[in-house]
């Protein structure tokens, strides 16, 4: 079927199989930051935004992006680098494989929650698994990043 979408700010019209996953579609369109960690909707690695809402691209029905905007890490590289610098400062990226999905979720959280407490942050990010870090360094990075953003606001 034919879909029209805006991918990372660029209009795209493409004939796609109805049952292709959004994840595969995105990778085929050059968004290689998008990773598949489980295929059962439990790891968060494949997180992208549809109209700014973080969703799992491994299961989001591809035809549903017709007429909507899709954003991957490639579309927010500057912001990702800004937050990512805090992750790097803590060693929190480790193997890095979960970083794109995690960062997309953190940036969505930043837009959605105002001054979230640690508990809220953990609840918001609970769907982002990481096997390397044990999460503490990620929280340190988030806190420092949000504090800095808060100061500059």
């Amino acid at each position: 079927m034919l879909i029209t979408t805006v991918l990372n700010g660029k209009s795209l019209r493409q004939e796609v199989p109805a049952d292709k996953t959004l994840l595969d579609f995105l990778r085929e369109n050059g968004c290689l930051s998008v990773k598949r960690g489980c295929g059962t909707e439990n790891c968060g690695l494949c997180t992208v935004w549809v109209d700014g809402t973080p969703v799992l691209s491994c299961s989001y029905p591809l035809p549903r992006i017709d007429g909507h905007e899709v954003t991957t890490l490639e579309g927010v590289r500057e912001e990702a680098a800004a937050f990512g610098a805090y992750m790097a400062g803590e060693g929190a990226e480790q193997c890095g494989y979960c970083s794109p999905g995690f960062i997309m979720t953190v940036l969505a959280m930043e837009r959605e929650l105002r001054n979230p407490a640690e508990e809220e942050i953990n609840a918001y990010l609970a769907g982002c698994l990481c096997r390397c870090t044990g999460y503490s360094s990620q929280m340190r990075a988030i806190r420092k990043y949000l504090e800095k953003r808060h100061e500059t606001d």
Partner: peptide, 9 residues
């Protein structure tokens, strides 16, 4: 239930 991204679906 799973995570925010899942609950958005």
């Amino acid at each position: 239930i799973a995570g925010v991204q899942f609950r958005n679906l």
